[in-house]
Design a protein around this nucleic acid. Structure first.
Lengths: 192, 192
DNA sequence: GTCTATAATCCGATAGAC
DNA sequence: GTCTATCGGATTATAGAC
């Protein structure tokens, strides 16, 4: 594995563990087993390396979500699968956690990477919810707002899990919302 | 206003804007118009000052939430009022945002401050939801899990709002959950 | 391509004069 | 109580040898 790849992998891990501001070029170099020269030969600076990592991560997360929504199950079931999928609550969302760092939000490119992921995610969730409404699985409601609720509950679940030091806080938060959605589906069925 | 108070106010503002790691003693001193000597005379170090600020903030937030739940409205209405209250989405939650910083989670005292707030909040939400169930405003369900969902949606709403640079992302996320809860209440009423 | 050496600045904290 | 001067170490980045 060449130095460039090693640097990307080291940065990726550190960005996940410590965030953007707290991840120094020096720390990346040490973890990658590379010197200053390597670092600044392959990347003009810390921001460029972080952007390379984040765009890779965004692509992976979007891809994973997309494959969740591109399946044979019924629309509501696909939404619930996304909501209740396994997540490493204590580690936080690789992209969402960066939305708390001022230096990330102040940078045009880094910010667009994070914001773009959420736009795509909410779009996918909204489309599945529209299908669920069309199939009468849930009553007609503001699906765009509900898509945001879903994304927010996951992101907030990470916050609660990290604060409490308990992975299950995330599971319970998403589980509570799933229960609500299922109840809405059942009530609807019961009234027909 | 004495120096100590000025230091606390400056730290409070900077902690809100930049978080814990990115807030340096020097920056606090400059904003407070105080020198190094003042800072280290009144506080043993950065952590102690941050803790003083955070405990103050925790008290205020808990107090505000408590007064929301200690009102004459019906239980579900109180929960919805909390969910849909006005918030400065772009600035983030004064406590929740710190849950993303490794140095905060690694410190016993700082962490307990953040975690304790969420424990209290979820306790209050859970109690109101229990009342709502007892009053048949909503069907019986796991109120502790739903309380976490409520807290998570607010926290995640902050994340989405900051990422997108649009305050309304938070409003829509909480609004979507409120719609769900209202639908649940209506369906219940409709079936009786 | 990769290394070491170095730059200028900032970090959190301490010392000691007043 | 408050100030200025200073510490040792970290930061992001550049220079130049190999």
């Amino acid at each position: 594995m060449d130095r460039r790849e090693k640097l990307i992998r080291a940065a990726r891990q550190l960005l996940h563990e410590r965030g953007y501001e707290a991840t120094s070029p020096r720390a990346i170099q040490e973890k990658a087993g590379a010197g200053q020269g390597s670092f600044y030969h392959h990347f003009p600076g810390k921001k460029a390396l972080a952007l390379a990592v984040l765009e890779q991560v965004r692509e992976e997360l979007t891809q994973a979500a997309n494959s969740q929504f591109d399946r044979p199950e019924r629309p509501l079931q696909r939404v619930l699968c996304f909501l209740e999928q396994e997540r490493e609550g204590l580690r936080g969302c690789r992209l969402g956690r960066l939305a708390q760092e001022a230096s990330v939000l102040e940078d045009r490119d880094l910010r667009r990477c994070v914001a773009g992921y959420f736009e795509d995610l909410e779009q996918m969730l909204g489309a599945a919810l529209d299908e669920a409404v069309a199939a009468s699985e849930i009553p007609p409601l503001d699906t765009a707002a509900l898509a945001r609720t879903l994304a927010a509950t996951v992101q907030g679940g990470y916050v609660l899990a990290r604060a409490g030091g308990d992975e299950r806080e995330l599971t319970r938060a998403t589980g509570g919302l799933a229960t609500l959605l299922r109840a809405l589906g059942r009530d609807r069925g019961a009234r027909r």
